[in-house]
Design a protein around this nucleic acid. Sequence first.
DNA 1: ACCCAGGCGGGCG
DNA 2: CGCCCGCATGGG
Length: 293
Amino acid sequence: MSDGIYAHKVHLSRFNLKHTFESAQPLTFHGDYDELSNSLLYVSNGRLVNVGFFGNDAEGDLVATGSDPSYVAAEIKRRFRTDDDMEKIYKKISTDDYVRTAIKNYNGMRLTVNDKWETTLCYIISQFNNVPRIRGIVKSIMAKYGTPIKNTAGKTVGYTFPESSVLANAAVKDLSKCGAGFRAKYIKEAAEFCTNNMDLYKLNPAKYDKLKEQLIEIKGVGDKVADCIILLGYGNLQAFPIDVWVQRVLQKNYFKGRKKNIKELHKFADKRWGEYGGYAQQYLFHNGRKNGK
DNA sequence: ACCCAGGCGGGCG
DNA sequence: CGCCCGCATGGG
């Protein structure tokens, strides 16, 4: 359904679009995946992008079409981290049977790199929430505050993600009506802060500790959400977001079911998976959420 | 009906 | 510091 006229193709191994889409990353919350055609439609930087994967379970051609030829190739490369050496990463994080099983179950699941403000908002909304509802809220906010993207027939096929300055001027009551509930005031405050006090696009992605410290200054952003932003917005693989699923997986499989606080778990993960913690976390999280209880 | 969700801020000890 | 509680809402 894309009106794109330019196609870009890249051959990849260890890539699975379905697992990537379903693993609660920002694209999960606003992209539209079609199982039959194994393709994903989403909006990036105000442009419509259509990505299809043609091949077997984890090897084939990633084909992207979009309305802007100069944009598509770079978009795919950045978004799906196509330059990541997955063999090397899998080797690094395969410290035990749990990780190896998770990799086998979700072979080819990639981390994505997303717009920094978009990522911030998505994970502020994610707190004390579930994936279907997060998606509903994000889509509702985009439809209300984003700019419609129309095809050549004039039909709206998607919405841009609203800038922080737009949401800074939104009414808390209206944000709440999008389903945000108690998070509505966090959204507005974060939007104001990121418009007036902190430029997310000027923070240094490489300085993990400093970056996290800065992100936590945003109201509604704590330890976990900051790690999500660092991992999926800044692309720093050192981040290891610990949510209820990851906590459960770690306690059950690495601490004989004993309760561990977030700090202890961070120390454990950092020592075990270090610079590739973000990838380890994504496999622990997704495997836990899909197969755990 | 009941429980829970990719947590966080605030208050208290 | 650490611990504990409330929080809007709707899917399963």
